[in-house]
């Protein structure tokens, strides 16, 4: 016991108590351009990173961006390593059993991108017998498991970048993901050379959710309200449009 106490206090020492009122906003530690990715200088940049800054400023929250493994980001929130998730996480029924969400701050369609030389579309029949890559723990994985797994082979990747990479390498025929994330990939020379949009998948709100929101711990209503205020404020005062215009041709807030 003595040893345990010693270890605990040593750990507590190195851990250091961070300022209690800082909100640690978890983003995915894996690059997800154009929403959040590290640049060569080690800074996180992208649309979502700027939105985090703007929402926190509008809600008068002191936020600290905390990169966290995507695959474990909900456990990290629940166990208290972070206080909020702003990592392009869709608001779904399944997740709402474990965490709460703010109002949405963007919503974009889900598409299938595939090899240029093959004929496929975004339906279970069109993808039958093909190999489809999806990112782990995403609504796309859930959707593909529900609609495509019966007839196609699914491969699960830790990051969307790696799924895209295997599309370039030719190991998979198609990938399902958010249209904007895939637009960025198709704009790259490798993406343009190999692949094209094959279509938008039929919407299923029970799986694909109601857009992207801020995830907070269950019952953390004060923080959720604060994020709602911040989102409403930047939508009203034009900051949201300003940031969006720097990245995208049209609004991504959705209907």
């Amino acid at each position: 016991m003595k040893k345990l106490v010693l270890t605990a206090s040593v750990l507590a020492l190195i851990a250091g108590a961070a300022a209690a009122d800082t909100v640690r906003v978890g983003i995915a530690a894996e690059p997800y351009p154009p929403f959040a990715s590290p640049d060569a200088a080690g800074n996180w940049v992208g649309w979502e990173v700027e939105i985090i800054g703007a929402v926190c400023a509008a809600a008068e929250l002191e936020c600290e961006i905390t990169p966290t493994a995507w695959d474990g980001i909900i456990p990290a929130l629940v166990s208290g390593q972070i206080d909020a998730i702003m990592a392009s996480m869709s608001i779904t029924e399944d997740r709402m059993q474990t965490i709460d969400f703010s109002d949405r701050y963007y919503n974009t369609p889900t598409v299938i991108v595939g090899q240029r030389e093959i004929q496929i579309d975004a339906t279970p029949e069109g993808l039958a017998g093909r190999v489809i890559g999806v990112q782990v723990s995403t609504v796309h994985q859930a959707y593909a498991q529900h609609y495509f797994e019966a007839g196609s082979e699914l491969r699960t990747y830790q990051t969307q970048d790696e799924a895209n990479q295997d599309l370039v390498a030719g190991r998979i025929d198609a990938t399902q993901a958010d249209s904007i994330a895939l637009d960025a990939f198709l704009a790259s020379p490798e993406g343009a050379a190999c692949c094209e949009v094959k279509g938008t998948v039929a919407n299923d709100e029970s799986i694909l959710g109601l857009g992207v929101g801020v995830g907070v711990r269950k019952g953390d209503d004060a923080l959720r309200e604060a994020f709602n205020r911040g989102i409403a404020a930047i939508l009203a005062n034009g900051v949201y449009e300003q940031i969006t215009a720097q990245y995208f041709a049209s609004s991504i807030y959705g209907e």
């Binding site: 695959d71 723990s137 994985q141």
Partner: peptide
């Protein structure tokens, strides 16, 4: 993307949110 026993456990975690 190899589905070994560890990957199956990860899938349970993703599907059910049981950690």
């Amino acid at each position: 993307t190899v589905i070994d026993i560890y990957a199956v456990a990860s899938r349970v975690r993703q599907d059910t949110f049981i950690i």
